[in-house]
Nucleic acid binder design. Sequence first.
RNA 1: GGAGGCAUAGCUCAGUUGGGAGAGCGUUCGCCUGACGCGCGAAAGGUCACAGGUUCGAGCCCUGUUGUCUCCACCA
Length: 876
Amino acid sequence: MKKEMAKTYDPTAVEDRLYAMWLERGYFRAEADTSKKPFTIVMPPPNITGQLHMGHAFDCTLQDILIRWKRMDGYNALWIPGTDHASISTEVRIVNKMAEEGLTKADVGRDGFLKRAWEWREEYGGRILKQLRKFGSSCDWSRERFTMDEGLSKAVLEVFVRLYDKGLIYRGEKLINWCPKCRTTISDAEVNHVDRESWFYYFKYPIEGTDEFLTFATTRPETMLGDTAVAVNPNDERYAKFVGKAAVMPVTGVKMPVIADEYVDMEFGTGVVKITPAHDPNDFEVGERHNLKRVNIMNDDGTINENGGAYAGMDRYEAREKIVSDFEKLGLFMRKEEIRNAVGVHERCQTVVEPLIKLQWFVKMDRLAKPAIEAYTSKKLRIIPERFGKIYLNWLENIRDWCVSRQLWWGHRIPAYYCECGFTVVSRERPEKCPECGGSALTQDDDTLDTWFSSALWPFSTLGWPDETPELKCFYPTDVLVTSYDIIFFWVVRMVFSGIEHMGEQPFKDVFIHGLIRDSLGRKMSKSLDNGVDPLEVIEKHGADALRLTIVTGNSPGADSRYYPEKVEASGHFLNKLWNASRFVLMNVGDDDVEKPGELTPADKWILSKANALITKTNAHMNAYELGMAVSGIHDFIWDEYCDWYIEMVKVRLRDDETKSAALWTLKRALTIALKLLHPYMPFITEEIFQSLRPEEESLMISAWPRYDENFNFPKEEKEIELIKEAVRGVRALRSDMNAPPSKKVHVTVVSKNRETRRVFEDGRAFFAMLAAASDVEIVSEKSAEGCVTIVVPDAVVYMSAAELTDREAEIKRLEKEREKLAFEVTRVKGMLGNEGFVKKAPAALIKEQEEKMGKYSSMLDSVEAQIKSLRLNAP
RNA sequence: GGAGGCAUAGCUCAGUUGGGAGAGCGUUCGCCUGACGCGCGAAAGGUCACAGGUUCGAGCCCUGUUGUCUCCACCA
């Protein structure tokens, strides 16, 4: 039965209906069935902090394209969705929300806080999952996971205990990054370095037992309260005599040794460095080498503690000013200079990070990093595009131990239990008794783990690890990880070493990196600029297909792109075009007249051959993750070849022509191929059309990906049709020049001495006449050019007996322009062929091609010249 | 300080083995052509940042320069 298609396409109604249908029919579901080759993607879990933005739409679209493609191509395609608890971001938001009610964490307590956090997760996590569906994401919802659900928490626990048992996790007093605002440690990856204008302050410390001084410079005078040495370079003759003596910090009276250490750069500043082991990473190392005392002078909120004596209680910056003025009074402050230096800030809140010594949990990185480096250098792990591989390597090669404990409540609590006797137990379950003293007064560590600790396990924890599930066996390792370049360090690197360590195999083969979607001015979309575009609003207005198409079109891997409303509109135009072309096909295709092709005409063969080639081209692009190029190829096929040419060519045959059934069959076949290739990019509209076009089939989504078919390769017909197209274009251009409206039909004569060429035009006569707005077409071997305007194409000249169309001078001008163009081409090709080097070295096929062009262009040039001559001769 | 990206039509961007410069939007002209005016047809518009080099041939490869953006980094 013929299905009617609505006059206009309404995405909003269609999309929800189709998504529900797919869902209900279980198309998204993948079983752990090894009879089909698996193809697996795990979705980078969005944070439950709020709602999805354009970046998510981009990320999901790319993954969905790959998954839908592979599913159609016969793979057992699994895409696992989920969400991330995002410990610090979520906790900060909950704290802020509580603050609006006048509550603090202390007021509600740990349990009360967690209750609120889980409520948050229900609300926002749920909203996010709904949004993912709106994108058209074909993920297996039955396998949806959350980083803090039971199974994943079990995996986290298991990993922590195993790493501890292997000695790869330890607790130690080390210099860590401290955020005084969030009051928690953060990892190196969470610190951003930003260049800021600041001051370089010069002070001097008196040297005990002399009346001399050592002058040094610092950007952080407040840390002088924690100074425990002054260092100079061992080769620095200027200061050699001071080494071994003691410097005095005048305001606190602290005495500290003057030491010699290679770390000091003689050229920089005064060549003297104050050493604060408790508040600077370099100084910490110097301190280790020289056994210096570490004096922590700071509280968790960034104020000075009791070790700061008179400065205790002051904010760090207040203390900075006070030190300067106090030294000034003592005559020991020399001067300050403006300097640009990089300060570390917390990436979430931009607060200046304070290096502090604290007792924290660390993952030992050197052993874990090695195989992750090896995975890449041995090419087992592919990063696309390649340049991001350097970033990956650079990070791993310079990695330091990963501080994983956080002073937060929302997250996986560290499974370490401390006994009164001082013994520490790390275990999967809370121990009843202390194995050391037998006491039962064990308290669990208050801290939770870095949120990335759990996401690092995502590719296998989501498949059921540590249990040996069939899913794990079937789907691990996954095939490709799709993510943006900004979380290579946070996530990609950590997943790789975690997968290798715990699964014995890297978690994915390919990493497909994409860029960011920026606003129309090229700025990052952000809350503070309020320039974010809500993908759901776009979908509301234009549909998910239009958004998806917009996002991938013209994007090359790893590149950022800008969002413009105009782009979505352009995508909408394409949907409209596709919809209407399909409607046209449906209007003409009946039930009984489509299955018998009959004899295919050259035009049919031409479009089928083009469609065939499109399959190959699309596969090649998609295999290389060139999704932007793939989709533009499909777009161009549909719009330029199928709509603008084939449909127009075919119209004349759709009444009572003997080739009607061939035309209908071809219309349908070519459209079907295009719909299939396009489906991963625009799943909804293609499915909707397919349901009407092929009601006998269940669904486009689960139909077979098209394959190249040698039986539909027609190079000869391709050339023939291109010739007619060229003639049509020529006639149209001429008519446009002459201001002849299409309604003004003109007698057209095609002249060619070549019988084969005449046959080509005979075959295409009907549509040629229509497309060229001819009243009738005559095809002959010879004709006088008198009173005619002409179009020269390879091997033929098209005459129009249209004295009334033209004025002679304009026509001569047009032909002269044409002659110039052809002459240029002839000269160019002649130059190439006359070039000894070219003829000697260029590939034979290319030479042949150029030789053919030479023949073609020079004969066309001759024809044009003949036309000009004849026009001049016949001048009145 | 190190690493990398980008520089192509008025705007936003494609251009993958080096072999006649492309798209979308915008602009101009024409069109009530049997799906589509969210359309059709025809056009205008580019020393592919600059300077060298390799090559028979460079938008594409190499070197340098300029501009711009980004990432990494413990010079106090």
